[in-house]
């Protein structure tokens, strides 16, 4: 962490699907422990950005670096093991697995194990350590009473928090949350905001949040980046972004009109 490289840095990152450029010349720097927001109207390239960083999509051009190491185009599992965890729009839990198992499955295999270990030994050696870490996380997201329920049977808000716990279980340096507040009511959103702050403070992770909920973004994030049609049209502190005329025009203005 004492090196000059930031935790995450993208440089001129571009992703095109055939003719459509979903993300263009994207550049961002995220330092360890920062809370970053990414906002923008639908189709602005936010999810594409997450998909490229997490390795789900390979970049068309440009670079993504984690602590100075190029990770653009690596396999998702590799990137996850290097320290980037994410959640998905609308959750993507293993619904047939229990709450505890969902967290354990992500805490496992951080260190690649060989076949003999996988089959015969070693499989329970890690288990104790994994379980205590998993229980701690489930406490944090207030699911400690539902350890053995199937994930699919939880209410929606609980599933959201479980997905965050699952992402944290791999001990990431960077946590990316894709619309974590979608479908939550205002008190749940407030609880989520406090949870994300707590996670940052307790686990020293940087967090990037994609969100449409402006209250959450403006209250939570230290820096915000605004995308529209794949381009970065503004960035800065919440105050700076709100004062940026381009942003107001492209995004806030549009939503005020929509609200009116």
């Amino acid at each position: 962490m004492h090196s000059a490289s930031p935790l995450l840095e993208t440089n001129n990152l571009t992703k095109a699907f055939k003719g459509l450029v979903a993300l263009q010349n994207h550049s961002m720097r995220v330092e360890a422990g920062e809370l970053i927001g990414v906002i923008g109207p639908n189709g602005s390239g936010k999810s594409t950005l997450f998909n490229v960083i997490s390795g789900f999509l390979a970049p068309t051009s440009g670079s993504v670096q984690l602590l100075g190491q190029e990770i653009g185009g690596l396999e998702p599992a590799k990137i996850a093991r290097l320290g980037i965890a994410r959640t998905f729009q609308g959750t993507r839990l293993f619904k047939e697995l229990s709450v505890l198992e969902n967290v354990r499955v992500s805490a496992q295999l951080r260190e690649p194990i060989n076949l003999a270990q996988a089959l015969f030994g070693g499989m329970n050696l890690q288990a104790r350590a994994i379980d205590s870490a998993a229980l701690e996380l489930l406490h944090l997201v207030k699911l400690e009473k539902r350890l053995h329920d199937k994930a699919g049977s939880l209410p929606y808000g609980d599933q959201r928090r479980l997905e965050i716990a699952r992402a944290l279980a791999s001990r990431p340096k960077l946590l990316m949350l894709d619309e974590p507040a979608a479908g939550l009511d205002s008190s749940e959103t407030q609880a989520l905001l406090e949870l994300i702050r707590l996670i940052r403070d307790q686990y020293k992770v940087a967090v990037i949040v994609i969100e449409h909920d402006m209250d959450l973004i403006m209250n939570l994030c230290e820096r915000i980046q605004v995308l529209a049609y794949g381009n970065t049209i503004g960035q800065g502190t919440p105050g700076e972004v709100q004062a940026n005329p381009k942003v107001r025009e492209a995004y806030l203005g549009a939503s005020e009109e929509a609200a009116a």
């Binding site: 789900f56 599992a77 996850a80 965890a85 993507r92 697995l97 354990r104 499955v105 699952r166 992402a167």
Partner: peptide
């Protein structure tokens, strides 16, 4: 456990680092 997770959603399994 990874086997059960991968049987349910192979893509998500890659993405959570299994």
């Amino acid at each position: 456990l990874g086997m059960r997770a991968a049987a349910e959603d192979l893509t998500a399994s890659y993405l959570v680092g299994i």
